[in-house]
Amino acid sequence: MMNVILRPATVADAAAIAEVRINSWRATYRGIIPASYLNDMKLEDSTAHWTKVLQAGSSKICVFVAENDEGIVAFASGMILPETKLGLDAELTAVYLEPDMQRARLGRRLVLEVAQACRTAGATGLLAWVISENKPARKFYEHLGGELLIEQGFTWDGMDLKEVAYGWKDISRLINDVPQLRSLH
């Protein structure tokens, strides 16, 4: 694998982040989310969303990208929650990788960056949501020591889905454990 660097995202990265997100969704959620929805995802809409997030410049939000010689190949974001959810005060809001970059240990490196940024901003715990049928993501969070907290229904753009929450009640433990994990599943 080429050298990959991790760095904080900038507004100039919004389109590349949007492209990674769409590519990841189309590969990961095929068969889980209707193909028509995945095919209709618009780069312009996602770019506008990420531009707004990155322009906000909030100390309560962090976004990191993984970049190699070909460009941005993955990203992750997190935030300090305005109110605790399930007893946790920060959320890992996104971890998306280009399909050919999955299982290259980038996801866990990005989670570590987000966890460290959230801890620096005062967080003590971390929450992550995933569509329940996304078995690889669930295994990933379980491998990182995430505790299954709840499974519930939710509606996304008119689709009725199920999601699960994983949590780390001690963000420092997550930060300390991630570098020692040897394999990703």
Rank of each mutant, 00 (worst) to 15 (best):
N68C: 14
D69P: 01
G71K: 12
G71N: 10
V73N: 07
A74V: 11
A76S: 15
G78W: 06
G78H: 05
G78P: 06
I80A: 09
L81K: 11
P82V: 05
T84C: 04
K85Y: 03
K85W: 04
K85E: 15
L86Q: 07
G87E: 06
G87K: 04
L88H: 05
D89P: 02
D89E: 03
A90V: 02
E91N: 06
E91D: 05
Y96S: 00
Y96I: 01
Y96L: 02
L97W: 03
L97R: 01
L97D: 01
E98C: 04
E98D: 10
E98P: 00
D100L: 12
D100T: 15
M101I: 05
M101G: 01
M101H: 15
M101A: 09
M101D: 06
R103W: 10
R103F: 12
A104I: 01
A104C: 15
A104G: 07
R105V: 13
L106W: 08
G107F: 13
G107V: 12
R109D: 09
L110V: 10
V111G: 00
L112Q: 09
L112S: 03
L112T: 03
L112P: 01
V114F: 06
V114G: 00
A115N: 06
A115L: 05
Q116I: 06
Q116S: 08
Q116T: 09
A117Y: 05
A117W: 02
C118Y: 00
R119E: 07
R119I: 00
T120A: 12
